[in-house]
């Protein structure tokens, strides 16, 4: 980086101090609300009413407690919600990567007159919003009898993930030299074989990016699943957590514990994959 080591003037040092202070302020602003949430999840609702900013136990007669977590875990039906979220996210991610790379390979390496039209329709899909398909999708899912089923959630999720997958996949596979495909063709390999043994292994880096984008998008999706499901057995974590904002809104202790449970999986995922996530965000932003 541009560290000018020998420049040790007062100006530089003041500049550095200001930089640290500014960054420090932004960091505190970014994470203070989350820390506040975590701290308060260990207070009972009664203690929270008396003590909204301090640590648990700073009011006479109260102490740190896990009771909120126990209650929220049971009332929120978290085991089934987490299982559903895992199913939706895993299946959507695997299928989107597979289908979009299959299509991308065909668009990039197999000549066909239909390519401009089909590929173009996927590109338009990048600009479409969920709002414009929400009501029709709700009606269609009802007509085919998939309302409040896992399949009725998964099919829309896969379709919505396709444009980004096709976009990233086609760009990447185009950069793989044609000679690789051609020489395999001369050796008599079928296209499906080429996809399986040459393209798929080579596409791993962009598959990671796509996986990151699909996982974060699917896990946190709320708007669609909110209208496509009605029972806890089918809902995902975000829709399930939302219950704590309604009927249980004034039971702050439970609500905070539920929110912490709701954010832990994604937080863990982020801390493990933060390098890949930041790369994925930057890559996903090139669409436009």
């Amino acid at each position: 980086m541009s560290r000018i080591k020998d420049d040790n003037s007062v100006g530089t040092r003041i500049g550095m101090a200001v930089t640290y202070i500014v960054l420090g302020i932004f960091t505190v602003l970014a994470i203070y609300p989350l820390i506040w949430l975590l701290i308060n999840s260990f207070k009972t609702t009664q203690e929270f009413q008396l003590n909204k900013l301090g640590l648990p136990g700073s009011v006479e007669g109260y102490e740190w407690t896990f009771v909120n977590y126990k209650d929220a875990w049971v009332r929120g039906k978290f085991p089934i919600l987490i299982l559903n979220s895992v199913i939706y996210t895993a299946v959507t991610t695997v299928v989107v990567i597979l289908f979009s790379f299959m299509g991308s390979f065909a668009f990039a390496k197999i000549r066909n007159r239909a390519t401009p039209a089909i590929h173009g329709s996927f590109v338009i899909g990048l600009l479409l919003t969920l709002q414009s398909i929400m009501v029709p999708l709700y009606l269609m899912v009802n007509w085919v009898g998939l309302y409040n089923t896992r399949l009725g959630v998964l099919i829309p999720y896969i379709g919505i993930g396709m444009p980004m997958g096709i976009y990233l996949g086609t760009e990447y596979i185009k950069s793989i030299p044609d000679a690789l495909v051609e020489s395999a063709r001369i050796d008599g390999a079928t296209y499906l074989r080429i996809f399986r043994s040459i393209i798929a292994p080579m596409a791993a880096p962009v598959a990671t990016t796509l996986a990151i984008l699909t996982v974060t998008g699917t896990w946190n999706e709320f708007m669609l699943i909110n209208i496509l499901t009605s029972t806890d057995n089918i809902k995902s974590l975000p829709v399930g957590v939302q219950k704590f904002a309604g009927a249980l809104a004034t039971d702050y202790g439970k609500q905070f514990a539920a929110l912490v449970i709701g954010l832990i999986p994604m937080l863990a995922f982020y801390l493990v994959f933060r390098k890949e996530i930041t790369k994925g965000v930057a890559a996903g932003a090139v669409k436009g």
Partner: peptide, 18 residues
Amino acid sequence: SYWLLVLPGFLIYVAVMA
């Protein structure tokens, strides 16, 4: 092979978005 590779994703995309 072209259509085998393209159709699964495209059909879902058409049904769900287009």
